[in-house]
């Protein structure tokens, strides 16, 4: 590696993900847009990384930075864009946000120590993409009957009815989710059921009733399958996202500290 210019500021390496050694790395702006994103090859794999200031990314500094929503969104989007660019060049194992090494030696040590596991993981997702599918249902109607009840007995009956309706709704949503997931599995190599996003997070009026990620070889077939399900079901809205880097399909041995 070429000699780096002297810096007054202490720098480390931000690792975005790992690709196969020699894979194409389309250009993308990193978390520090002034610094070039490079592939640091070590045996069969290469770390996609760029230099960062440790005053910005050190643990102590990070606690404060994470409270800054604007900073956080910029850096998270940059992280995602670099990993997506790497995905255009071939298989990539994405790192979690803010994986930072104090020096290049430590980064290379990780790549060489975990080289085999990383190479296996990359081989497993070669030619595959992660797609996200979410299902939404209209929010549960609230009759407000109980609050208008004119007697104690009417109130209790209305409350009981409301409770039954809620239970019925939860049951039918569970069935919708299970059926949807089972059918989509038929178009995918692997899958993960994700936590439902609350309405505050999803920003939608409708309630999320299913959230899943699928590792897919034939994207056209998966999308056709999803479109067919959408035509059959007018009680749920389906949303497709991706293709994503396979965040949800990083093997467990690499996704645990």
């Amino acid at each position: 590696m070429a000699a780096l210019p002297l810096r007054e500021e202490e720098t480390g390496w931000y690792l975005y993900g790992v690709v196969a050694s020699g894979a194409d790395l389309p250009a993308a702006a990193g978390v520090d847009p002034r610094e070039e994103v490079v592939a640091l090859a070590e045996g069969p794999v290469a770390g996609v990384a760029s230099r960062v200031s440790l005053s910005e990314f050190d643990e102590a500094a990070l606690a404060e930075r994470l409270a800054d929503a604007e900073w956080l969104e910029q850096k998270i989007r940059a992280h995602e864009q670099v990993v997506e660019a790497a995905l255009e060049g071939g298989a990539v194992m994405p790192c979690r946000f803010c994986t930072v090494y104090r020096d290049e030696r430590e980064l290379r040590r990780f790549l060489s120590e975990r080289g085999d596991a990383l190479a296996d993981a990359l081989a497993r997702v070669e030619g595959l993409v992660e797609l996200g599918v979410k299902a939404f249902a209209a929010p549960a109607p609230s009759s407000g009957e109980a609050s208008r009840a004119e007697s104690g007995r009417a109130y209790l009956e209305a409350r009981r009815r409301e409770q039954q309706e809620r239970q019925e709704l939860a049951r039918s949503r569970g069935e919708i989710a299970a059926q949807l997931h089972e059918r989509l599995l038929g178009f995918a190599e692997d899958s993960v059921v994700l936590a439902l996003q609350s309405r505050d997070v999803s920003g939608r009026e409708a309630e999320m009733v299913f959230n899943g990620a699928y590792l897919v070889a034939d994207r056209g077939r998966f999308e056709d399958g999803l479109a067919a399900i959408a035509r059959e079901r007018d009680d749920v809205g389906l949303e497709l996202t991706g293709p994503w880097p396979p965040y949800n399909f990083v093997p467990e041995e690499l996704s645990r500290p």
Binding site: R77, P94, C95, F97, T99, V100, Y247, S255, P257
Partner: peptide
């Protein structure tokens, strides 16, 4: 994006980690 970038992916012991 957050669901993936903050919560999923390779997690490395040691060094700097949020």
């Amino acid at each position: 994006v957050l669901e993936r970038v903050l919560d999923k992916g390779i997690v490395i012991a040691g060094d700097i980690q949020i």
